[in-house]
Computed example of a mutant assay.
Amino acid sequence: MKKYFLFITLLVSIFSCSQNEDLSTTEKSIYFPPITGHNWETITPSELNWNTQEIEPLITYLEEKNTKSFIILYNGRIVIEKYFGDHSESKPWYWASAGKTLTSIITGIAEEKGLLNINNKVSDYIETGWTSLPVTKENLITCKHLLTMTSGLDDSLGDKVSPANLQYLSDAGTSWAYHNVYVKLQDVIETTSKQSFSTFFNTNLRDKIGMTGTWLQTGDFSVYYSTTRSMARFGLLAFNKGAWNSTKIINEDFFINSINTSQNINKAYGYLWWLNGKSSYHLPQSQFEFQGKLIPNAPNDLYAALGKNDQKIYVSPSKKLVIIRMGESSEGTNFALSNFDNELWGKINLIIN
């Protein structure tokens, strides 16, 4: 009788565990939307036991802060998707400097294909004279310096990347200065792949994960425009460490390096990604070191693509979240980080915690 009781108990236990696994499958597995079409699975805030009473205050805040679109993904599924004013799911908007992370990933793809080595100097791939520096100083600048904002070029001369605007500030690797010179990586890829950067990008990234969008010329360089869902697709790729479902898009080692501190000057910067949870950080157009986390209210493991006027991709593996915000500036003009980041995460925490 005792053995029979133990057997029944074991069966009940196994059934219970199996049932719990079935109930939590949606929560545990990462979902990827189809490459084509508009279908995208959703999950409700209630299913996640989120505080639904705080959602409407968040939406109101976003609208007050000139937001055009906002998406929260949980393990890839849409939890919240909201468009404001005349913006819609089908309308594109610019990524601004959040698009730097597109160039980061494309550089990793190009390196894996043998088209470049990030430790080689830029002038190995494009002709010398791409800056106003003496050749000896220009040849100190590697592709990795462009990825990490440590080129040593003066960041106070505006957005242009013609040689006249690329002037000496310090030797490469000795200072951190936020600069559009990173787009020279696109020139490197065009030269080594023998095709336009946009063609290489479309073939090796955009089309493989079902993004839409295009690079539009703005002055000396191009800015990416896409729908909010396309930005969310890229965020989901970043959440899954550079793989789309089971398909590897970028070498995982490169991607892991890109979302970790890349140099010893600005601890909150990887390969064109911003990093939270570090002990200090630098901001654009400043050589001052600020103490503390980049976004105090955000998870420590968060890595982010931050663009002018509050274009945002936030990725937090510990919270299983990808969050997208597109729109006009929340207040004033900013180049990457703003007060909006911390305020927004304060409101998100009221929902998810």
Rank of each mutant, 00 (worst) to 15 (best):
E47M: 05
G307A: 05
W274N: 12
T136N: 07
T174K: 09
I265Y: 07
G277E: 07
I313C: 08
E54Q: 11
N297D: 14
G292T: 04
F255I: 14
Q291M: 05
I141W: 03
S222M: 05
K319F: 06
G99Y: 04
I249F: 01
K320Y: 08
L275D: 12
T191W: 00
E64I: 06
T261D: 12
Y271H: 14
D155F: 03
S88D: 11
T227D: 09
T60D: 14
W274H: 11
D171Q: 13
S175N: 05
C143R: 00
K121E: 10
L116F: 07
E56N: 08
A298T: 08
I256M: 13
N297S: 14
T9K: 05
V322E: 13
K248T: 11
Q19W: 06
S132P: 03
K320D: 14
L272N: 08
I209C: 07
K28T: 13
W215N: 13
S318Y: 03
Q19N: 14
E27R: 12
N342C: 04
N204Q: 10
I30N: 09
E27K: 10
L344M: 15
E112H: 10
Y94P: 09
L306I: 06
L306Q: 13
N257V: 01
E54D: 05
Y74W: 04
G307C: 08
T227F: 04
T67K: 08
E81H: 02
N349A: 05
A110W: 08
I352F: 02
Q195T: 15
K319A: 11
K312C: 15
I43T: 10
S222V: 00
F335N: 15
L302A: 11
I323F: 00
L11D: 02
L10P: 03
G307Y: 03
P57Q: 09
Y225P: 09
W273F: 15
S330H: 06
S193W: 07
G129T: 07
N264C: 00
T203Y: 04
V322F: 08
Y4P: 00
S286R: 05
N120L: 02
D171V: 08
D341E: 15
G242W: 06
T36W: 01
F221T: 02
H38A: 13
G242P: 12
T218R: 04
I126C: 06
S88T: 15
T218P: 00
A232D: 11
F70Y: 15
D187Q: 13
T247S: 09
D155L: 07
P284H: 11
P284Q: 14
K278M: 10
Y125T: 09
E328C: 00
I352P: 03
N240I: 10
P284W: 11
V122T: 13
W215E: 12
I189W: 09
D253P: 01
F340L: 15
L294K: 02
G210Y: 03
N20P: 00
P296M: 12
I78W: 03
W176G: 11
S246R: 11
D187V: 01
S230E: 14
Y61H: 09
T103E: 07
L272H: 07
T150E: 15
T9Q: 06
S13E: 01
N342T: 10
L147K: 08
